[in-house]
């Protein structure tokens, strides 16, 4: 059932595109698929028209699977709509309903065109239903992705604003790095760090990376650059908090922190820093 080999879907839709568009727009309004205050009527019409064309084009090239290359234009278009929805504050169900609201008018059209062929009608409805379901899911996934991007960006901004460079002892700074290091954020942190080195006349910096989930070659390169810049100012960097799985991965990747002092934990790094600064930690006996 529903192999769609002799499917007339594309043809039927193409022949009644105007009518279908009107019905779909009505259905969208009824289903409140899109906030009317967040998008103009003209834009909605334009977008829906474009989407119908892409749908027809997709149907012409394959009815089996919407993850194929033939459907990529449709998927990309839906992605951008869904991500926009996420940015503009549409709800997830509004986003999914947009595609799902196409079902009713398409079914009605098929019923009208295939009234004498009940078997074909069933097949076609099944096929369209499957296609629209998978496109609806795709919209939903992309919406989710848009939300995640927003949350990630806000988080990044928060971290960027709070200056993570701290003076923990006379002459000793620490930078706890948390989260994803992209070029922009690293730039800010590096500038802060170099400025703080000057301000505090520090000779040692501990860069703590246990909060960084992935150290790929880009992150490694940022770390190398930071260490090199500090070194030019006469300051030694220690990298601490390299977790075992990260260490193993870095070795295979081929990035080695050969010329950089590394310590397993922040405590080890601190101990080393004290020693370098000729400071002793002494434990006093408790008086009874």
């Amino acid at each position: 059932m529903g192999t769609g080999k002799n499917s007339k879907i594309a043809e039927i839709i193409n022949n009644s595109k105007e009518e279908l568009l009107e019905n779909w727009l009505k259905e969208q309004k009824k289903a409140k698929a899109q906030h009317t205050e967040l998008i103009s009527e003209g834009e909605l019409r334009h977008r829906s028209e474009e989407l119908l064309s892409l749908f027809v084009r997709g149907c012409l090239s394959g009815l089996e699977d919407t993850s194929t290359e033939a459907w990529s234009e449709m998927r990309d278009f839906l992605s951008s709509i869904s991500r926009n929805n996420a940015r503009q504050g549409f709800s997830p169900s509004e986003t999914a309903t947009y595609i799902f609201s196409l079902k009713q008018p398409v079914f009605a059209l098929l019923r009208q065109e295939l009234s004498n062929e009940p078997d074909a009608l069933l097949d076609e409805i099944w096929t369209v239903s499957k296609l629209l379901d998978s496109l609806g899911l795709h919209s939903f996934e992309e919406y989710q992705r848009g939300r995640e991007e927003i949350i990630e960006r806000q988080r990044q901004e928060m971290i960027g604003h709070s200056n993570p460079v701290m003076k923990i002892w006379e002459g000793i700074l620490t930078v706890p790095l948390i989260g994803t290091l992209d070029s922009e954020r690293t730039q800010v942190i590096m500038e802060n760090l170099l400025q703080k080195i000057v301000d505090t006349e520090s000779s040692i910096v501990i860069i703590e990376i246990s909060g960084v989930p992935t150290v790929d070659t880009e992150v490694a390169q940022y770390l190398f650059k930071t260490v090199a810049a500090a070194k030019l100012m006469g300051t030694e960097c220690i990298i601490s908090g390299i977790r075992p799985q990260i260490a193993q991965t870095m070795v295979q990747l081929g990035v080695a922190f050969d010329d950089i002092m590394t310590k397993t934990t922040l405590a080890d790094a601190l101990q080393y820093a004290f020693k370098q600064s000729n400071l002793d930690i002494v434990q006093h006996q408790k008086r009874a």
Partner: peptide, 27 residues
């Protein structure tokens, strides 16, 4: 890039890959 890292991580957790294997493939 950060999206695909998250996605790969999630799939590998679901497939019960070890932490080391996860880290390698995510990287």
């Amino acid at each position: 890039i950060s999206y695909i890292r998250q996605k790969v991580r999630k799939w590998m957790v679901e497939l019960r890959f070890s932490l080391v294997e996860q880290t390698k493939i995510v990287t």
